[in-house]
Design a protein around this nucleic acid. Structure first.
Lengths: 113, 113
DNA sequence: TGGCTATTTGGCTATATGGCCAAATACTCT
DNA sequence: AGAGTATTTGGCCATATAGCCAAATAGCCA
């Protein structure tokens, strides 16, 4: 299998692999939202939010449409709900296995961001 | 919703958001593999593979067990197949929408890695 | 014990990412 | 056209990530 195959898929996954972006995706699962609304949800600088949205748009996760002064974003793919549910399974699974985590896996510095 | 909620989930997603790691996850969906086998699959330095595995283990995506000299890794969560299928939907969706991609989303520099 | 093989770790460097500010752009309304 | 609001872009800096090499660790077997 070509490298490009995994690169493409990794790009899509990476586009959701950030707390703010994930939060936006979750919010967008309900209905389309404009940048100002998304900014309120993730509580970040407008320019930061805009860049996060550009990353997701570039990955094909969201699409935008202009409505007057506002730009509305919506999810491109209906499978997002499945995706989120899937992550929940991971979390659940992770928790159930937590007590027997080996010491090695604790040695990695936890991310601060 | 607390920030920690999205942070936890983003960590898990991030742990799969790399071509080599994704390739390993895909390979592990079939059966458990030792580090040497995984190294052959992703064609990377042993230490690099090991670090990728540590990241996934830390995120709770894989578990390991020692068998003689080798360390075998396996997926923690049975939902991984669903996850991968879900990414395929994204890809499919992305392709179908490709022709009408706006110029803006092309402005982001494509990653070189 | 000593040698051998498999894996992990530490340290280093290059590159990527995220966040903030300031400036540019896009659109509306007067 | 000019003012005002929403969003994007460019630039900069701090931090995170990936990959390589060398060294450390772990288990097996003579």
């Amino acid at each position: 299998m070509k490298d490009l195959f995994y690169l493409t898929r990794a790009q899509i996954i990476k586009a959701m692999a950030h707390p703010s972006r994930l939060k936006m995706v979750t919010a967008l699962a309900d209905k389309e939202l404009c940048v100002r609304e998304l900014k309120a949800i993730v509580k970040a600088d407008m320019s930061t939010v805009s860049k996060h949205l550009a990353i997701m748009k570039n990955a094909g996760i969201v699409q935008d449409r202009k409505k007057g002064l506002q730009v509305y974003y919506r999810l491109t793919c209906p499978c997002t709900a499945t995706f989120l549910a899937c992550i929940e399974s991971f979390v659940k699974n992770q928790r159930s296995r937590f007590s027997k985590t080996s010491s090695l896996s604790r040695k990695l510095k936890p991310a601060k961001d």
